[in-house]
């Protein structure tokens, strides 16, 4: 599926942060939005996710193939979200977090799907553990798996590597973008770090409004 942004304008208190931005993200491709703090990149991401709230105002179209997403509530957009914190639910086990994301269905099949995803990410046997007992890298991987198990049509990444140490950051970048390319998920990445941007990504640079 292709994620399409048409003539997006975002303003706050009458000040335009983004003016008439258009972009198209093909399956498995990455659009990186870069810019300094206050340039509107996180507001753009919030608008795409459906979490932008007043006093922000927005105009423009958001389409997934032909479907207009901008009128849908967040839970019906099928757009996954990953923040700089992994935001794993700390009271649920790793398996519980993954089952929360999987669509309803036969429990055994859902458990098998979650365990297969863990195995694919090198986390076999981690299902019964609580997030608090995992390392930073393991938590990040579980967080990505959780987002993907909900079968999102697109994914939004908000500075997803900024809280990892240097060695882990490189490892997570490779894991994340390889996984997203394999699953052909269009991805919108917001970052201020050039190193986060994968080689073939489109880049939009926002200036400080």
């Amino acid at each position: 599926m292709t994620l399409q942004l048409d003539n997006v304008t975002i303003a706050v208190h009458g000040r335009r942060l983004i003016r008439d931005l258009s972009a198209s993200i093909e399956p498995g491709c990455v659009l990186a939005v870069m810019g300094p703090s206050g340039s509107g990149k996180s507001s753009l991401l919030a608008w795409v996710a459906g979490t932008l709230e007043p006093p922000f105002e927005a105009r423009g179209a958001l389409r997934l193939d032909d479907a207009d997403l901008s009128v849908r509530p967040i839970q019906q957009r099928r757009i996954g979200l990953l923040f700089q914190d992994d935001l794993l639910f700390p009271h649920l086990t790793v398996l519980g977090n993954l089952l929360f994301a999987l669509p309803a269905g036969d429990r055994n099949e859902r458990v098998r799907a979650a365990e297969a995803a863990l195995a694919e990410a090198g986390l076999t046997g981690f299902g019964p553990r609580l997030p608090g007992s995992l390392s930073g890298g393991q938590r990040s991987r579980v967080s990505l798996l959780r987002a993907l198990l909900a079968a999102p049509a697109a994914l939004l990444l908000d500075e997803p590597f900024s809280k990892l140490d240097t060695a882990l950051r490189e490892q997570m970048r490779e894991f994340t973008f390889a996984t997203l390319a394999t699953r052909r998920v269009p991805t919108l990445l917001v970052t201020h770090d050039e190193a986060d941007v994968p080689p073939r990504a489109q880049v939009i640079r926002l200036t400080d409004a």
Partner: peptide, 18 residues
Amino acid sequence: EWTALALGRSRWAFWWRV
């Protein structure tokens, strides 16, 4: 909340489970 909703779950499921 945003993460749970973005996973496709309802507000009620988020409230009750998380």
